[in-house]
């Protein structure tokens, strides 16, 4: 209860990433594309001496990605020792969850249903809690 969440906007919808998993929020500078990888991986970007794998959350959820990515915000998360930058439309404040994650009858739509741990109430209204592991694994985009 009262889990801290990073509020953000993904594919035009309110979403939240558990703040405990987020190392920092960065502005994406230059991205080195990696040919041959699934579309949701936009490439690599460097944060100090580390290379971050840039994940486009919109595409990972099965939506259209944005063409323009310069100066976009991204949340840096560590999954199994690998660092990822999760690109979001916008990143807001850190806020508290006002409820446990819960399901909504009928689901959230195919992509969201797979990637979200559920819906939580926040001060800004209902928000989908993103499951970081699922997003970076990239299985949703293929399934959707």
């Amino acid at each position: 209860m009262n889990e801290l969440l990073l509020m953000c906007l993904i594919a035009g919808r309110r979403a939240a990433i558990p703040a405990i998993q987020v190392q920092s929020v960065i502005e994406i500078g230059e991205i080195t594309p990696i040919p041959g990888v699934p579309a949701f991986i936009r490439g690599l970007t460097a944060l100090r001496s580390q290379a971050l794998t840039v994940i486009d959350c919109s595409i990972a959820l099965g939506f259209e990605g944005q063409a323009e990515i310069a100066d976009q915000r991204a949340a840096v998360v560590d999954v199994d020792g690998h660092l990822y930058a999760l690109m979001v439309d916008a990143a807001y404040d850190v806020g508290e969850a006002r409820s446990e994650p819960m399901d909504v009858p009928g689901g959230f739509g195919p992509g969201w249903q797979a990637a979200a741990r559920g819906m939580v109430e926040t001060d800004g209204g209902p928000t989908l809690l993103i499951d970081v592991q699922t997003i970076v694994a990239g299985s949703i985009a293929e399934a959707a």
């Binding site: 040919p35 699934p38 991986i41 290379a51 020792g81 690998h82």
Partner: peptide
Amino acid sequence: KPIAPAIMETRLYAGT
């Protein structure tokens, strides 16, 4: 440095 599993899956790259 090692690369993310999703990139490894392409079997094109060994690291970064």
